[in-house]
């Protein structure tokens, strides 16, 4: 009767997957290019405040030129109580061992100098141009940052950057 006669059960044709590797490779290359590896996984909790018109640090060659210092509340709550204001520094994968440490042993000075010595061959810049980027928590006391500045001043590491999350529309 009907013009469109139902044919017998036909097996669905297989989807051609030969272009799948191409698609996957494309995605792969995108992520390979867009990737920036994390320098460290800080054990202090840092919630960065937001601001506008910040300088983008990406041009500084994949961040390897920048030294990051984290300032936040230790994730280990028992340790947080040890510190005056509850904030500890996290440098180079090591959390500040004791509250007084920062001031007693000039650890920041040593840390920065070591970092600079290690990459001196790669980065042809005087130490005064190598950026120290402070990633501090919203509530972190600025006094600690100024103590860091004094330490950095001693070894002439004169460029500092205060990290923010930029929310200005470019």
């Amino acid at each position: 009767m009907s013009k469109f006669k139902k044919e017998g059960k036909k097996s669905a044709p297989g989807v051609n997957t030969s272009s799948l590797p191409d698609i996957v490779f494309m995605l792969l290359f995108f992520f390979m290019v867009a990737t920036t590896t994390k320098e460290a996984d800080p054990t202090v909790e840092v919630k960065i405040p937001s601001g506008v018109r910040a300088t983008d640090m990406t041009p500084y060659k994949q961040r390897s030129e920048i030294d990051f210092a984290y300032l936040g509340v230790p994730r280990n709550k028992a340790r947080a109580a040890e510190f005056d204001m509850g904030y500890a520094l996290f440098l180079d994968n090591v959390e500040q061992p004791a509250p007084g440490e920062l001031y007693n042993t000039n650890s920041i000075r040593k840390w920065k100098q070591d970092k600079y010595d290690e990459k001196r061959a790669r980065v042809k810049k005087p130490i005064s141009e190598v950026i120290t980027c402070v990633k501090a928590d919203k509530g972190a006391p600025t006094g600690i940052i100024f103590d860091m500045r004094t330490e950095l001043q001693e070894i002439e590491a004169l460029t500092i950057a205060y990290a923010v999350r930029d929310n200005s529309n470019i």
């Binding site: 990737t35 300088t55 920048i66 990290a163």
Partner: peptide, 17 residues
């Protein structure tokens, strides 16, 4: 392993001692 956030900061000079 990708982190997509860009690092943004206010760059400032520390005066010479």
């Amino acid at each position: 392993t990708t982190t997509m956030d860009r690092d943004q900061a206010y760059k400032r000079r520390i005066p010479k001692k």
